[in-house]
Simulated assay, not measured.
Amino acid sequence: MRMTISLSCMILLAGTLLLAVPAMAADTDVAARLDASGIKYEIDDDGDYKITVGYKDQDRSQMVFVSGGTENVMGLRVREVFSPAARLEADASGGNGADWLAKSAMSKLGSWELRGKVLWFVVKLPEDMDADTLETVLNIVAQTADDEELELTGDRDEF
C-alpha cells in the first residue's frame, strides 16, 4: 500500500513539473523578445522583467514591467505590461477615480488600475506578441505613466 501511494505521488509530481515547463519557456520568450529589441532589463524578486525607459531631453526615467507569467483567459494566454504613476497617499491629490476612469475610456490601449496604494497604467495583451509589438507597448506604457506622474507630482520622478 505504501509503495502505491509513493508511486502515485511521484507520478503526480512529475506531471506537475512537466506542466511547469511551458511557463518557464514563456519567460525565456519574453527575454528573447527584449534581447532582440536591444532592451536592457533585470528580473525582479517576483519574476517580472523590469525595464527603465529614459527620457534624456526631460532628464526623467520611467520603470516599466513585463509580467514574468501569463494568465489564461478562456484558452488565451495574456501577459501584462505595467508601470507605476503615483502613490495615492502622497501624489494623488491632483486626481481621483473618476478622472482615471475617464482617461481609461479615452485610452486606445491600456487602462488605469489601483493596486494597493499605487496607481498603475496597465496593458494586457495576448502572449504571442512579437518583439516589435512588445517594444511599442513598453513605450506606450512608460510614456502614459510618466505623463501622469508628471501631472500629479510636478517635477518629482520617483518611478
Rank of each mutant, 00 (worst) to 15 (best):
W100P: 06
D157S: 04
T70W: 06
V141L: 03
T144D: 01
E151V: 11
L34D: 05
G68C: 02
G15K: 06
F65L: 15
D57W: 04
G38M: 02
M1Y: 14
A142R: 01
C9F: 13
D46P: 04
G116K: 03
E151R: 11
D29S: 10
V137Q: 02
A90N: 14
N72I: 09
A102D: 14
M74E: 15
Q58W: 09
L152R: 05
T133L: 10
K50H: 10
G97N: 09
I5R: 10
L119S: 06
E42K: 13
D59P: 05
D27F: 10
D147V: 03
G110N: 01
E113D: 11
S6H: 14
L119C: 05
V66Y: 00
V73F: 10
K103I: 05
E71A: 09
E135P: 04
F159T: 01
L18A: 14
A36N: 04
V30R: 02
T133M: 13
D146T: 11
W120V: 00
T16I: 11
E80S: 11
A85C: 08
E158A: 12
I140M: 02
T136L: 08
S8H: 12
R60A: 00
F82K: 02
E127W: 06
A25Q: 14
G54C: 12
V73H: 10
I5A: 05
S111N: 15
D48H: 02
W120E: 05
R115M: 13
M74G: 13
M129P: 06
A102T: 09
A14L: 13
T136P: 06
T28S: 14
